[in-house]
Design a binder for these strands. Structure first.
Lengths: 232, 232
DNA sequence: ATTATCAATTGATAAATGTCAAGCAGGCGT
DNA sequence: ACGCCTGCTTGACATTTATCAATTGATAAT
């Protein structure tokens, strides 16, 4: 495994508190693998054989029932997913697929659990990771249940805008279909939502978005750290 | 603090792996307190001063923005809530209030964090607790996004029915207002949802519900362990 | 250059859910 | 018993969101 990736993985909060020797041992058991776009990695209900780390690319966590489909979150580098199922040795509750070409680290769940029992520092790191992940889900629920689809879009745009330098423009990192799924609406509705935001200075040109009336948009979106911030 | 309660708390997964002396010390710092119904315990945004354990009664976790209000989950005995905020020393993301007369254990967050650093067994127990809590939220999201309100009600009834002995009848433990909030709909809609389920053998008399066509209801509700089961 | 393909948009319509207002019934105190 | 609150229900209507169908526009393949 290239050293530069090892460094990035080592830098994850999840592994921060881990003993160096244990970390090396855990990485011995792991695979770094490339995947093309739109490959399903895991299916809900499957036993949790691996813990995954997104090193590069993007992974969509989603769920399905009765033909309906819902995106729950996107996992971007560098972070782990399905930690909970791995630790509990329980079936995955979500499916996962790549949205683009991605490189993933696969660590056998068994090794993670062994190390978790052996290394108290690792256990502590996992606690922080899990606490962060939990809070992120709370935010997702609040975003979904307390806001209309248009408000969700507006707040998403403001967040992306801030992350990309807050210079009045932003570029969507994912295609609009995926964005619609992430925001919990249909692609048709996303188009209409963009149109609805036009009076608030939102202009769309493909993946490029301009926000020309930022204060108006903020007045409309009413972002709040209790939903839109990211935990440290 | 009465011994019987201490035993129940000690039996919580959260404290299972903890050293006995450490547990005793942590309990020294804790308060056991009674609260009347409908008392707001914490407000979202507040600093996480205490970890709470519901010993008796019921606590509703909810969130508000712009006058809208949404119940996220109900916490019933004996379990802890807002573990994540406590551990991260971060503001609560949810508000909490009692729905009935309740007895709660309050443990100062600072003591929890100190103990978490000191006692690896406690840290491990917290991991399991957090993993379970995380998976519970995933289920809540799936329930909310993949099902209509009527389906949510049908599955709720089936779950309550199973928990109460599966004898063709069940009694709602919470008033219909709270139930509506929990299922993510208005009280008016809940009434209509009950009416819609009549053809599937659901008869309502106040808080008493009879399910006379269980297989029909199951066919309609299509419960799945990936949403409706509870983690061990 | 032409066609095939697919994402994105638009329009028309339907379904799900929320809102407002009124009415009903049971429990409670007087 | 009486009135009165409170929670629940019902009806009429508005809003939000989804669905279906058709069209556009860009990109890639022939």
């Amino acid at each position: 495994m290239p050293n530069i990736d090892l460094e990035a993985i080592r830098g994850l909060p999840l592994f921060a508190g881990m003993d160096a020797a244990n970390f090396a041992e855990l990485m011995q058991a792991a695979y770094l693998q490339r995947f093309p776009p739109h490959v399903q990695l895991i299916a809900e209900g499957d036993p949790a054989d691996f813990l995954y780390v997104v090193v590069e690319g993007c992974v969509e966590m989603f769920a399905e029932t009765r033909g309906r489909r819902s995106t729950i979150e996107l996992t971007q580098p560098v972070s782990a997913f399905i930690v909970a199922a791995t630790l509990k040795d329980a079936p995955y509750l979500m499916s996962a697929r790549t949205t683009e070409r991605s490189r993933l680290l696969l660590i056998p769940s068994e090794d993670v659990r062994v190390m978790f029992e052996r290394d108290p520092g690792f256990a502590q790191s996992i606690v922080y990771e899990q606490a962060t992940a939990y809070r992120s889900l709370v935010r997702i629920i609040k975003n979904q249940k307390l806001r209309t689809s248009i408000e969700r879009l507006a707040n998403y745009l403001l967040r992306a805008h801030a992350e990309q330098g807050a210079n009045g423009a932003l570029t969507l990192a994912i295609d609009k279909r995926t964005l619609a799924a992430l925001l919990g609406m249909t692609p048709e509705n996303l188009s209409r939502a963009f149109a609805t935001l036009k009076p608030y200075g939102v202009t769309v040109d493909g993946a490029d978005i301009r926000l020309s009336k930022l204060t108006d948009l903020e007045t409309f979106a009413k972002p709040t750290p209790l939903i839109d911030a990211r935990d440290a």
